[in-house]
Structures are given as C-alpha cells and as structure tokens.
Amino acid sequence: MKKIVFAVLALYFAAAGVLLLLDEPAAETVRILSIESESSFLITDAADRLSFTLCLDDPDAFVADLGAIASAALDDGETILALTPAEIAATGHSFVRDGVTYDEYRYSFTTDGISSDGVRLAFRDASLVLRFADGSTGAYAVGDADIVFGAPGEPRHLDFTRLYAVFNVEAGREAIAGIVIGLEAKTGTGVTVTDIDVGCPGIAASVGEVVVLADAPPADQPIGSFYGGTTRSLLAAAEPGEIVLLDGGLYFIPVVHDGRIRSATRFMILISYEYEGGRATFAIDDFSFRTPFPFSEEYGGEIHGYEHRR
C-alpha cells in the first residue's frame, strides 16, 4: 500500500513540475532588433499598407501583439507621419546575433485618414515609433523611406505593358540590377521620358544606359551581357538620359546602388516625361519584385538592438 501511495505522490509531483515548467510566465523584457534599410511606398488610398521589419527574441512578447499597440508613427525628427497598425506577421525567418535567436516580423500599417495627393515625404534615418497600451514607447531605427501619395496609372499619356526586375549577384549578395519595362505612348504623337525614379533611397535608375530589347531577358541575366559582355558593377554612377517613345517598346533600365549594395525588393516607379511642351509624372504602385531578403547584416545596413521592458 505504501508503495502505491509513494508512486501516486511521485507521479503527482512529476506532473506538477511539468505543468509549472510549461506555465512559465512570459519574460518581463523582450529584445528587439531593427535594421536600417530603404523603403519606397506609393500610397494610393486609405487602405494601402506600408511595412517595416523588426526581429524579436520572444514570439509571445507583447510587442508582437497588434492589440498592444495603441498608436504608431514614422518620425525622422523633421517629419512625422501617423500610422495605423494593420498587421503583425511572422515571416518564418530567424536571425542569430550574439547567441540570441530572433524571429523576423513584418509590421504593416495604413496611413488611414491622411491624404496628400502628389506629396512626397522623404524620411531619412527614420524611427518607427510604437506606443503601447501600457504607456511605454519604443522607437526603432528603420532607415530611409520615401512615401508618395498619388494615383497610379495617371496621367494617361503613357502606360506600362510589362514589368519585372533583373537581379544579379555581386560580391556574394543578390541585388537588383535593373528593371525590364514595356512602355507605350498613348498620345499618338509620342512622349519623351526624361527620368525614371524608383523612389528608393540609395538606388537610382540609369536612364542614359537604357537598352532597347527585342525579347524579354531572364530575370537573372548578368547585367554585363546587356552591354556586350563587359563587367559592370552595381555601384557604377547613374547616367542621365532620355527615352523617346513614339509608339512603344521593351526596355532594360539598369539601376545603380549608392555606396553599398542595397537589399530593396519592393518599390514604386515614377516616370517623368515631356509631352507637348508640358511635364508630367506617371506613377506605378510599389510592387514586390521579389521575396524580401531575410533580415541580414550582409547588405551593410546598420543593426540596432533594443531591450523593451513590459
């Protein structure tokens, strides 16, 4: 009988121990990483989203709970844009730094209620400011962001017929090397494209090096092969130029990276052109050309670490 009582007691304590371990309270602090990168968003309506990446060492942390965020803003010290939290989604990627494993999250927001047609907000060294329901605040450095409020596909003097990006590997890092774009003048008399702006800080289109294409190239075609097989760095200087569109055509427009290779994969395109003596800009909504690169130190964006107490 004694043996049975001891066995029951032993089982009870073992089960209680397991339950206590499983019921471990959430940590009082959460470690957060942000990386300075380049963002480009065309805001077309109140529901349009912009997103930033943060990495957390605790997936159960309140910072990952949308309901815990009372308000948010993008702030670079000169400009503040209020944001409405829309979604926090784990990307499935993780990142190890100083022996700590962080999970990557995409924080998405809308600019609900704010409308400012044609205005470009250029944030430099901006912080994503999150104010939590418990009264605490976190400001996380997210780098540079260009945000344009406007209508894509306007005005109607031209249109695009095809769009994708060519990615190359340079110094072991995959990065955008150019865009393939089909352009069509809708005026009957032609338009002259004077500039193409990818709206992404640190990346510029080199319109002067435009190549007229007979066929669509593969999305990983080496950039040098567009210029007779020569080697061409993604860090070359941009060359200004024009594209005279009488009817339409398919073009490769290389992009150059300022100072270091950038990891941008999603950006808007603003095409400046002249038509009958006037100037206008045609906008293409920010498009995700490729799966975002996972949070990484490889591209040289400065990483910031934070410890946020509940």
């Binding site: 309506d45 349009d48 989604a89 784990a90 990307t91 499935g92 894509p152 920010d286």
Partner: peptide, 17 residues
C-alpha cells in the same frame, strides 16, 4: 525543420484599359 505557417501580403493598385 520548418513547419510553421506564416504569410506576407501587400496591395498593388493598377489601371486596366
């Protein structure tokens, strides 16, 4: 080793003639 379910989504606005 990965088996979790995650998603990423974004909107794209386009004009169709």
């Amino acid at each position: 080793s990965k088996s979790e379910v995650t998603s990423e989504r974004y909107e794209f606005n386009i004009i169709v003639d």
